[in-house]
Design a protein around this nucleic acid. Sequence first.
DNA 1: GGCTATCTAAACACTT
DNA 2: GAAGTGTTTAGATAGC
Length: 692
Amino acid sequence: MMQESGTETKSNGSAIQNGSSGGNHLLECGSLREGRSNGETPAVDVGTADLAHVQQQQQALQVARQLLLQQQQQQQVSGLKSPKRNDKQPALQVPVSVAMMTPQVITPQQMQQILQQQVLSPQQLQVLLQQQQALMLQQQQLQEFYKKQQEQLQLQLLQQQHAGKQPKEQQQVATQQLAFQQQLLQMQQLQQQHLLSLQRQGLLTIQPGQPTLPLQPLTQGMIPTELQQLWKEVTSAHTTEETTGNNHSSLDLTTTCVSSSAPSKTSLIMNPHASTNGQLSVHTPKRESLSHEEHPHSHPLYGHGVCKWPGCEAVCEDFQSFLKHLNSEHALDDRSTAQCRVQMQVVQQLELQLAKDKERLQAMMTHLHVKSTEPKAAPQPLNLVSSVTLSKSASEASPQSLPHTPTTPTAPITPVTQGPSVITTTSMHTVGPIRRRYSDKYNVPISSADIAQNQEFYKNAEVRPPFTYASLIRQAILESPEKQLTLNEIYNWFTRMFAYFRRNAATWKGAIRTNLSLHKCFIRVEDEFGSFWTVDDEEFKRGRHIQRGRPRKYCPDENFDELVAHNPSLIKNMQTSHAYCTPLNAALQASMAENSIPLYTTASMGNPTLGGLASAIREELNGAMEHTNSNESDSSPGRSPLQAVHPVHVKEEPLDPEEAEGPLSLVTTANHSPDFDHDRDYEDEPVNEDME
DNA sequence: GGCTATCTAAACACTT
DNA sequence: GAAGTGTTTAGATAGC
């Protein structure tokens, strides 16, 4: 221990600069020292100019300390060495900073001498006091120097504030200042402890006429490592003292260092306000001690009969045994110190992580808030990267709720009810039926990336995806290799991709079926193996629905022949499902349409089964019924894509460009009235009441 | 407040 | 007949 002290003294400058070299007895102090001695806090970076300035000041301080050290050593050589000390500490060297920080100008070594010798002769005490007085003058000079330093620092801070420097730099400077203040307070506290200790031992008496020991003006000359050293010296002194039954304040000191430094560091990093009063390191020990007295069994290191010291987990039957265990097994030694250091680092890392996450969250919220006020120029329907719930108005193309970070499947999303840029993180549990509109005018397809980016999240979290059923169905279909899925496959896709759809199957399955039927973009196709669904993306973007109240597409068999008789052209729509659904066949249809090839030709080109044929006929009949009765030309959503027919080669009237875009506009409907409006949809045309 | 989109539930019909 | 599938309607809700 003392060798470490000596090592530190030898490499004084470097030891001060490098908090990990020697003074590792007390960790929090070491951490603080690192921040301070390097002119930066562990959490933030200081500006280069600030850092250089602080370092210059520190170098000047070190020079002064070395001068002081030399003087002290001379004093020690002059006759205050005790035989005991020489035995135990052959190379005793006083940490310079310790000498500086003790207002009594009694170095720990000297104090230890006193403690070890127990009795000093009056002559020795007189010499000691004289030396103290001489040193005190130098101490006061150094204190003034420190004061000037602080003033300069404050001036810098003010200048930076006035110069409008970035808040981060301000915060860093403020953090530095807080660190200084904190160290000052710690030092003052230790001073008092130290003084009381000496007074109790009767080894130091403050004479009324004697220059007042400067309890207060010890400025920022304290370095945590020095505090550690002093603490250790004092503690060891008290340990010696225990033999005389005069046991006091050792635990308090330990508590002081451990409990005050870590939280104070926390406050420096996370909550500057918490330390602005500079009090936290002062009263914490007593408070904690009181807390433990009031709640004797609520020690942070004790719970469920187990010692919570990291890596310990020793079973303690009661709190008293725990205290014994704590004092015996986790006393102040290198091991405990190292463990404490590790724990501090863990806490630091967690705090840093928390700070970063908070900052990220803030940036996200800020970003989304700004975004919500932006014009809806470019709909980004499902920008899930932001991973924050936002209202629909936050992005017109965005759904109302977005999940939290995809990396945290348990993170809730928030279904925001209303209001722009409302971002909360607490209301996921109220996920319910929410509107998920992409646009009033058209649907903006979600991309695979939209879902893929949050795939794991939705797979694991029972969070309702912020997509409409239609969008999800479309996505499911488009993700399939054949761009077609059976209903059951759609179900499976939903359950596979979204944990939310692994319950209440009846509800969402019904919704899927409803949407499949309701949206014109979904096209049901039959083949010999059954029926499957495809999607017409253009129609999807139009977002049109089948109008309510329109007659059912399904046509009972008993009406089939009659309907065929009334609609002979329906046979043209007896294409195979394959011919329609695959992109290849769609292209083929387009090509044929361009060349005015009647679509029924495709039927002959395909390989329709009788079942498929009948189904196609039946479906087409339904569409024909609609046409017949309501004079509608638009596609019957029905399902055979050919129901969404437009007379391509028959009609000479121009087609609605929109309608002509898609493959659905390719089918001939020779029997249609030439004057019907192709642009009209079910939505546009009232349903023929006769049909009903 | 009206309109629209969406969701949900339900009824009904057909198919397997 | 049961289950699955498909269609349609009505009501509720939320956003525009």
